[in-house]
Deep mutational scan, measured.
Amino acid sequence: PPDDERKKAEKAARSGNEEKAREILERLGYSEDEARELAKRLR
């Protein structure tokens, strides 16, 4: 489910793995720019 994926992205971002967070968010349908912004904010 998307919620689980989003949680994974948050966890990745918090542990400093912004790249992985961005990949997950892009898979969820965010654009590259949106995903980058979100990954930064989740950190």
Rank of each mutant, 00 (worst) to 15 (best):
D33E: 13
R41E: 07
A21T: 03
A13I: 06
P1R: 14
E34Y: 09
P1F: 14
K40M: 13
R36Q: 07
K7G: 09
R43S: 11
S31P: 07
A9P: 03
L28Q: 03
A35K: 01
S15P: 03
L25G: 00
D33T: 11
D4K: 11
K11W: 15
N17T: 02
E18F: 11
K11A: 15
R6L: 15
E19C: 03
E32G: 08
S31I: 01
L25I: 01
E19Q: 11
L38M: 14
E18L: 15
I24K: 02
E34M: 08
E37F: 06
E19I: 12
R27K: 14
L42F: 13
A39F: 06
G16P: 02
A12R: 03
A13M: 05
L25S: 00
E10D: 05
L42V: 05
R22F: 04
A39N: 00
L38S: 01
E18Q: 07
D4C: 01
Y30G: 00
K8A: 14
L42C: 01
A13G: 04
A21G: 04
D3K: 08
A12P: 03
D4W: 11
R27P: 02
K7V: 11
R14V: 10
L38K: 03
E37W: 09
P2H: 13
L38E: 11
K40H: 15
A13R: 03
L42K: 02
A35S: 04
A9G: 03
K40D: 08
L28R: 01
I24E: 03
Y30D: 00
K11N: 13
E19L: 13
G16N: 05
D33A: 14
L28S: 01
A35T: 02
E37R: 12
R27Y: 08
I24V: 02
G29N: 01
E37H: 09
E26F: 05
A12M: 11
S15R: 11
P2M: 14
P2E: 14
Y30N: 00
L28Y: 03
R41G: 05
R27Q: 13
P1T: 14
D4T: 14
R41S: 10
D33K: 10
R14T: 09
D4F: 12
P2D: 14
E37Q: 09
A35C: 08
R41T: 08
R27E: 04
L42S: 03
E5Q: 11
A21N: 04
R41H: 11
R27N: 10
G16S: 05
L28P: 00
E19P: 06
R27V: 03
K20S: 08
I24G: 00
L28V: 03
R41F: 12
R41C: 15
A35W: 02
D3R: 08
S31H: 04
Y30L: 09
L28T: 01
S15G: 11
E34L: 06
D4A: 13
R36V: 06
E32A: 15
L28I: 08
L25M: 02
G16L: 06
K40R: 14
